[in-house]
């Protein structure tokens, strides 16, 4: 464990807690893409399969439970909660996310570290995580300005993966033959997807206005 990875995990944790807090306190999910939340639930379900079989550390198990629990409860809130669901903007959140699930799955069948169920699902979860934010970014473009909590959520989500890239660089130089192209390329693509959002996010911080995304 190194500082970059710990910072990345805590940033990731903060992003889901910010989102849960927002939905739980103001009982609204305005501006949040259910599709992205469903994709994240799939990412965690397919990546944390080994939760019950291999024990790595208390930290690892605890974090996996928190991520699984929070992502599924966010999906439940938006789909089922009688008040929250009313604020879900389903005719704006129209990204056909099955069109990214299938290609990711096909890609995982082609490119993986080993052709076993666990490895293929693990690669699938990495590819899917890289593009899971797309419905949310599309929704932000459509609804133009977004409230601060959603902005913070997306920012923290992007920052976590950027910190992970620093972690991979650190591990590459400190651990012999630590080479994992699948993880590295997926993580890089994921972070690049956030790049333009980061640009507008910092712009809005500078001129202290609401976050205005260009049409």
């Amino acid at each position: 464990m190194n500082i970059f990875r710990l910072a990345g995990d805590l940033t990731h944790l903060a992003s889901v807690l910010v989102l849960l807090l927002k939905i739980h306190t103001i009982k609204s999910c305005a501006g949040i893409s259910l599709k992205t939340q469903e994709l994240y639930a799939i990412v965690f379900a397919t990546r944390y399969l080994d939760l019950f079989t291999t024990y790595i550390s208390l930290y690892n198990t605890l974090m996996k439970l928190i991520f699984l629990g929070s992502s599924f409860s966010i999906v439940w809130y938006i789909r089922k909660h009688k008040i929250v669901r009313r604020s879900y903007d389903k005719d704006q959140d129209t990204f056909r996310h099955y069109f990214i699930v299938l290609p990711c799955f096909v890609l995982a069948l082609i490119i993986h570290e080993k052709f076993t169920v666990r490895e293929v699902l693990w690669a699938f979860s990495l590819y899917l995580e890289a593009v899971a934010i797309l419905p949310q970014l599309v929704l932000l473009q459509r609804t133009r300005n977004i409230d601060n909590l959603t902005g913070q959520y997306v920012f923290l989500l992007g920052a976590y993966r950027a910190l992970y890239i620093l972690n991979w660089i650190y591990r590459y130089f400190t651990e012999p033959h630590f080479v994992h192209w699948i993880t590295w390329i997926s993580g890089l693509v994921q972070t690049l997807l956030y790049a333009d959002f980061f640009y507008y996010y910092f712009q809005s911080m500078k001129n202290n206005g609401k976050l205005q995304l260009p049409a």
Binding site: R5, D9, H12, D50, T54, I56, S57, N60, M63, K64, F67, E113, W122, Y164, N167, R171, E175, F178, H180, T183
Partner: peptide, 10 residues
Amino acid sequence: VDTDSIKDEL
């Protein structure tokens, strides 16, 4: 056992 170290990441 190949402790695939990348798998200990979240």
